[in-house]
Design a protein around this nucleic acid. Structure first.
Lengths: 175, 175
DNA sequence: GAAATTACGTCAATAGTACTGACATAATTC
DNA sequence: GAATTATGTCAGTACTATTGACGTAATTTC
């Protein structure tokens, strides 16, 4: 069972000894696991994966972004994006439009079909969030948003704010 | 650029129109992306991946858990776990001990080496959390914990509470 | 206007993590 | 003794990601 040179089993649970916040580390893992499980089930019907979801999400959030911008947001390589993006274009969820200023660029836009799928994927996630915030007021909501934003690398935090004014919850847009 | 049958590009950003909470959906994505990036870099030095981290984490958190229990927590299949667990055992991070009551079971324990790696991986994550909670008091912390816990599927929420008493932040352990 | 750079696409090879299905073994339960 | 359970393992497949290399078209630089 145990090989001769193996170290001895430690039978005590790892503790918050060193001031390490295992409680939130673990909660974050479980929360994200279930948060992504809802759209995963829908995606399976289309033969898509989580990567397709992310691309579809950001193209809907920032219509007209270029391939380079998308790569920067997703933090993946061009080669990884290629297959996923091609499938979304081939299935008519996303269209490419030649950049107006720079014709080398490909601006990415959702089609009606792509918009519908993005909404269908976001719906269960939003429902889960709403349920989790059920008894929360604006204060609690702000606390949670602040926390999540603070968890993002400072140098990448700029990406978050690249949301259209009418959509941003922060600078109380024009609606 | 656009194939003949392709749908028309939608040029407006997807909005919170349908009451969908894109702000938090996106924040959660960015937060988790960066939350996992710290340990990923350390793991790369060992030739390990994220799966190794998860196994190592839970074996340290609940020493003596069986393979079946681990599969249940991680929500993966036996075959997926096999390779990862074998590598962690071969590299002397985890040891198997025959179950005392049921000798078919393999209780999993960390070695000193495995404990050390788990701590090393948790440290930057905990640092990130502490920084994000910098100006937060107990109230904010409780709000965030409640939110994350509420994001977990209710039927799976029991898993969270399977933490040793002296480690649980909830029932203020004996230290 | 030629050369360098940029934006994008693509080919090939590889890795990590997951999956399903099938089968083997040992231990426990009925 | 037979059925069930816990674990391990083999084979095959899929998805997402990686690095490196190369091609093309458009723009910028000199």
């Amino acid at each position: 069972m145990t090989s001769p040179a193996a170290g001895k089993p430690i039978r005590t649970a790892i503790a918050d000894e060193d001031g390490i916040d295992f409680a939130i580390i673990e909660l974050f893992f479980f929360a994200y696991r279930d948060f992504t499980s809802d759209p995963d089930q829908i995606l399976a019907d289309y033969g898509f994966g989580r990567a397709h979801h992310r691309v579809l999400h950001f193209v809907n959030r920032r219509p007209g972004l270029t391939v380079a911008e998308l790569l920067d947001v997703l933090k993946i390589t061009k080669q990884s994006l290629a297959r996923v993006l091609k499938q979304l274009i081939d299935t008519d969820h996303i269209v490419q439009v030649q950049g107006p200023r720079d014709r080398r660029q490909r601006e990415l836009y959702p089609t009606a079909k792509g918009r519908a799928l993005a909404l269908a994927l976001a719906r269960p996630q939003s429902r889960r969030i709403r349920a989790a915030l059920e008894d929360s007021g604006a204060t609690e909501r702000a606390t949670i948003e602040r926390f999540l934003e603070a968890m993002v690398n400072p140098e990448l935090r700029a990406q978050i704010d690249i949301v259209p004014a009418q959509t941003s919850g922060k600078n109380h847009g024009d609606h």
